[in-house]
Structures are given as C-alpha cells and as structure tokens.
Nucleic acid binder design. Structure first.
Lengths: 142, 142
DNA sequence: AAATTATATTTGTATGTACAAACATTATTT
DNA sequence: AAATAATGTTTGTACATACAAATATAATTT
C-alpha cells in the first residue's frame, strides 16, 4: 500500500507545492468564464463582501503579503473593477459597479470549483483534507 | 471543533496554496545555508542522483513543466553547478564538481527541513498528511 | 524514401508572489 | 510639545512558474 511514484512524494514541501499547482490549475479553469484568474477572483469576492475593506485585512483573509495585495489591487483598479480611497495612512478598497455585476458569476465559478474537486475526491475526503491542511498551516504559521 | 479562522479556509484551493507558501518559506530557510533556494536544491539533488538525466525526466520527478526545468537548469549552468550536453533531440544534464561538493550540505538541509516540520506537526501526522496530499494530487492530476 | 506524426527541448512572454526598503500616518513615551 | 516607536501602504526589484509557439530530432506510416 506504499505510495512511491516519485522520488520526492514523501517530502511534505514537495507534495504541498505539487498539489497547490494542480489545484491552481483547476481553479483557474473554473474561474476562466469570469475572465479572471483565481487570485483576482478571490480578491473581488473579498472586496464585494466587505466594501471599504483595507489591504491589511485583505492580506489576512487571503493569506498573502501586503505587497502582493497592493499589486493585485493595482491591476483590478486598472481594469476598472476596484477603487481605492486613501484615508490617513489607511486605504479603503471598494468594488465598482462592474465588479458587483460579476458577483453571481464569481459565486457560480467558485461553486463549480468545489463541485469539480469534490467529484474527484469525494465530499468527505475533500472536507477532511482541506481541514487537515488548514490545521497544519495554522500550526506552522504561528 | 469547527475551524473557521478565515473566510476561505474551507476552500481546498485556498488552503493548498496558503500551505504551500508557508512550506516553501520553511524550506527556503532550511536550504539557505546551501546558498540555493529550494527548487534549485531539489534540481541539484535530482541530477546528483542520476547524472546524465534528461530534462523530461527531471520534470516528471519534480512535477514541474519542461519549460520551468529548462529555466532552472539554465541558471544552474550559469552558476557553474550543472552542465548540459546535447544528444540528438535529447539533452543530458550533469553535475559539476562544484555541485557534487554540495551533496552533503544538501542532504543535511533536506533533513533539517524534515526535522523542522515533523517537530511541529509530529512524525505520524506529517507522514499521513504528506501521503494524503500526494494521493489527492494523483487523483486530480490523472 | 518521402511524408507525417510524435517526442524532447528551448524561447518569448506573462503571471503571481515576496522581501526589503521607503513613505506616510498614528500612537506612545519622554 | 518633541522624539520615538508602531502601523499601514506602496515601490523597487527579483524569483519561480507556466503557456504557447518555435526548433530540432526521431519514429511511424504510406
């Protein structure tokens, strides 16, 4: 019952990264109909859900560094999907009408991603795996 | 017992990527003493283990696209750690003396990475998680 | 043997992500 | 009130990765 297909599959670093790559590919396909890659889709969903949210909070929710978040926002601003407003040292990020219009499509794409991987892994396996990975993440990141 | 720290932690895509990021960070720290980031370290270990190996085979073992492998090799060639030899349409990749000298250090770093994450997650948990992730990867990628 | 198809590799270009440093503002200490 | 420290954001720069197209060679079919 030993799994030993590749030389590195017993290394958590390697498995984690290889897995993230296939999941990203799947996700990008699911979000393709929205015209956005997954990171941007998540950013939009985050802002749509909390208009006025600050980059710092976005970076916590998405678990990306602030500088990455700035970069993502910049591009969405350029494409007319987000707007920034400076308030002291803080910044507030707002959805535009254009991005609000995307809301249903984003939701649908996210659901289709969920369906896709649960149909392959099974609902319970997927749930458990997600949870285990998240727990491990929390342990390591603290 | 529900885990619900962030909005996206029930999404496998998100957890997988967030986890890969923290694992990459940990790995890069472990390999820092070798002067290489983790991908290059893995590349070197792969070539050191099978001198003459072809990019295609490297790409299978490392689960990266061929183009990525070409890019990685290029940089190592530039730094004098790998050499390429063209044989028909194939390419053979060889370690240099310099990279053979790195072998023990690479091994040590890889072991220290292993120790690091098993000390946090526990040996058995880590083993199981690695295995589960690898299984899921195999299911999705086929 | 020529034509076609398949395989291995590389190149042009683009993307997502991060670190470290800079900047700007607010909070705390003296 | 001035000086210092802390916090939030952005900028310069770099890296790992990939896709699609181009090249080059080998294998198969006709």
């Amino acid at each position: 019952m030993e799994i030993q297909e590749t030389k590195y599959c017993t290394c958590l670093y390697h498995s984690a990264n290889a897995f993230a790559r296939v999941m990203t590919k799947m996700a990008d396909e699911a979000f393709a109909p929205t015209g956005l890659s997954t990171s941007y889709a998540f950013l939009l969903m985050t802002v749509n859900d909390s208009p006025g949210i600050q980059p710092k909070a976005i970076s916590c929710q998405m678990q990306l560094t602030p500088s990455t978040v700035t970069r993502l926002i910049e591009k969405m601003e350029y494409r007319g999907l987000l707007e920034r407003k400076s308030v002291g040292r803080a910044t507030q990020v707002f959805p535009t009408e254009k991005s609000e219009a995307l809301k249903p499509e984003l939701k649908k794409a996210w659901q289709s991603l969920y369906k896709q991987y649960t149909s392959i892994l099974g609902k319970e396996t997927a749930r458990k795996l997600t949870d285990d990975i998240h727990k491990a993440y929390m342990e390591i990141d603290k």
